[in-house]
C-alpha cells in the first residue's frame, strides 16, 4: 500500500475537474510564507514535502492543498524550535474567536 501522497495509478474514475477555486488570501500568504522561510534558510522545499507526507492519512485525504502546506510548515517550525505548538494554538484560537468559524 503506497504512502498517502504517492498517488500515481491509484484507482479512480473521477474526471479531471478543471474549475479553479478562488484563492483565499491566507492561501496566497501561506504560499509566500514558505518562500520567505526558504530564503531565510529556515525551511527548504524538501522539508515542506516531508512535512506534507507526514500528515495523518485521513487528514491528507480530506484537506485542501494549502491546508496541507499549513500543517507541514507548522511541523517543521515546531520541530526546529522556531515556534511552539502552544503559542500557535493560542494565537489561532484568538483569530478564530475574532473572525468566526466555518458553519
Amino acid at each position: 500500500m503506497p504512502a498517502v501522497h504517492d498517488r500515481g495509478g491509484l484507482p479512480t474514475d473521477e474526471p479531471i475537474d478543471r474549475q479553479e477555486h478562488e484563492w483565499a488570501d491566507w492561501e496566497r500568504q501561506t504560499q509566500s510564507l514558505r518562500t520567505v522561510l526558504d530564503q531565510r534558510g529556515i525551511m527548504n522545499v524538501d522539508e515542506l514535502r516531508r512535512g506534507i507526507e507526514s500528515i495523518d492519512p485521513a487528514e491528507y485525504e480530506s484537506s485542501t492543498y494549502f491546508e496541507r502546506w499549513s500543517a507541514s510548515i507548522e511541523t517543521i517550525l515546531v520541530e526546529k524550535g522556531v515556534l511552539s505548538r502552544a503559542e500557535i494554538d493560542e494565537r489561532a484560537q484568538a483569530l478564530r474567536d475574532r473572525w468566526g468559524y466555518p458553519g
Partner: peptide, 29 residues
Amino acid sequence: GRPHDHPGVQEDAVLGVRASRALAMHELL
C-alpha cells in the same frame, strides 16, 4: 487589516483550523 475573500465570491470570511494556524504562524514569526 483582516484579509478576506473577494466580495460576492465568499461572503463569510470564516477561518478553518489550518487557515487560522497559518495566519497565527505568520503573526508570531
